[in-house]
């Protein structure tokens, strides 16, 4: 067990005008851990996620990241070049809508190869080999390597987005509703994929979802957000089985039973 968290967030605030999207949020993310963030839409989950990898600048507070090499550093202390480099190497961001995370104008292979090329891969054959390997990992027929993403189904696009993000073996993966909008059988396959990737690659993941079943199956820990605030956090089974806050109880009791 290492004693330094991959990510350390302290007193993070972000407001849009007079509306607070994130209020005084603090937490730590440990290596190999999956942290679920649940809460209704508009509770600030996605804003928080975007603040964490610099897509949105927070109003106050600090986000400190421990890179593979060396010492923890806050986002503020990093140059833009450093942040952008991390976001193509050690960080990954899986968007809710695959179209936001894919380059729709180029083939599946180029989508996967982009991160490799951005860090200096210059051997076409090797890039292609890795792209094929990743297509297989995410269960997309490798013969589709030269097809454009828009010829793929929604579930395939989402898997392609995951492959594109994980090809550089990131340490920190932020996922925004990765299984939202997919039918349940595709969702199950994706959950299985994410679970095994997390285990095999020792990823640290922050998973934003409003689906408590997804949160239960994937995350070790949960944070419940409401109106920009973290109202409860703890072990996933504790939050779901014995929620303390009124809103958490409402959330858990509102889940439909199959």
């Amino acid at each position: 067990m290492t004693d330094i968290p991959v990510l350390e967030v302290e007193g993070l605030n972000k407001a849009y005008g007079s509306i607070a999207a994130c209020r005084d949020i603090s937490f730590e993310l440990w290596p190999g851990e999956v942290l679920g963030i649940v809460g209704e839409s508009g509770s600030g989950k996605t804003t928080l996620l975007k603040c964490l990898n610099g897509l949105i600048e927070a109003d106050s507070g600090s986000v400190s990241y421990l890179p593979a090499s060396g010492e923890a550093k806050t986002l503020d202390a990093m140059s833009e070049a450093e942040q952008r480099y991390l976001s193509r190497t050690e960080w990954a961001y899986v968007h809710q809508h695959p179209r936001d995370g894919l380059r729709m104008g180029v083939s599946a292979g180029a989508n996967i190869g982009e991160r490799l090329m951005s860090v200096g891969a210059r051997h076409y054959g090797n890039i292609r080999e890795q792209a094929i390997e990743w297509l297989e990992k995410v269960e997309i027929d490798p013969s589709r390597i030269d097809d454009l993403p828009h010829t793929f189904s929604g579930g395939m696009q989402q898997r392609l987005q995951i492959a594109r993000n994980l090809v550089t073996a990131p340490r920190l993966v932020l996922m925004d509703e990765p299984t939202g909008g997919l039918d349940v059988s595709v969702q199950a396959r994706l959950l299985d994929l994410i679970r095994s990737l997390v285990r095999d690659l020792d990823l640290s993941v922050i998973l934003v979802t409003h689906d408590l079943a997804v949160a239960r199956l994937l995350s070790t820990r949960l944070m419940v957000m409401q109106r920009g605030e973290v109202i409860e956090q703890g072990l996933t089974d504790q939050i779901l089985d014995d929620p303390q806050a009124a809103y958490s109880q409402l959330l858990v009791s509102s889940v439909l039973q199959v």
């Binding site: 067990m1 199950a188 396959r189 959950l191 299985d192 679970r195 239960r216 199956l217 070790t220």
Partner: peptide, 21 residues
């Protein structure tokens, strides 16, 4: 989590798993 890993085993009444595994 560390405590569960090292010391405590728990067999519940229900099986909760990811489909397909």
């Amino acid at each position: 989590i560390a405590l569960r890993e090292a010391e405590i085993g728990y067999v519940s009444q229900f099986l909760r798993v990811i489909p397909r595994v």
